[in-house]
Design a binder for these strands. Structure first.
Lengths: 88, 88
DNA sequence: ATGTAGTGGGGTAATTCGGGCT
DNA sequence: TGTGTCCGAATTACCCCACTAC
């Protein structure tokens, strides 16, 4: 099935993350993001991969928040939600 | 999409609020402001969200809405759409 | 084949991160 | 409780030039 394997250039990914194209290249070099190399050596990234990293790092099942617009208390220690694969 | 999804760096947000970048980081850690992390661990903030906080529209009566209005429509309009038409 | 734009690689400065303290 | 500053460390941004992509 086609997961939208649209290939993006480093410049595209950089614009999405608001970073420098060189930084995106560094991510690929560090193995933090999948990269496809062209015969010339340039890198190309998958749209699906970048999208997953952009906001839904945890790919959590986004539930409808229509029944709770009143919660202003951050006391939800049960799980803030997006527990990205942080390792910093 | 067109909500001005321009991402800002902690330094930018800090300059907007006249506070230290560290303080902005605390807000993100407290969940008071949405934050997007780069594979490297750095944070990026949405211009629209920062703007709402600056305007004070985010702390009206109780309309605190820091969540992300995820459009669960049938169409995956979440994407920016036809950004590049056959670039490579 | 030539030209423009983007990309790659290396190196250095600036920013940000994380935790702890005043 | 919330903000600003300290530290060390990692990550990122911008500089150069050479090569690739169209």
């Amino acid at each position: 099935m086609d997961t939208g394997d649209r290939l993006l250039t480093p410049g595209e990914v950089a614009a999405l993350f608001r970073v420098d194209p060189k930084t995106v290249t560094r991510w690929a070099a560090a193995g933090r993001i999948g990269s496809i190399r062209t015969p010339g050596g340039h890198r190309r990234f998958r749209e699906s991969e970048v999208r997953a990293l952009l906001e839904g790092e945890g790919m959590l099942d986004e539930a409808e928040d229509v029944g709770k617009p009143r919660n202003v208390g951050p006391a939800t220690s049960t799980g803030p939600g997006p527990a990205n694969a942080g390792m910093y």
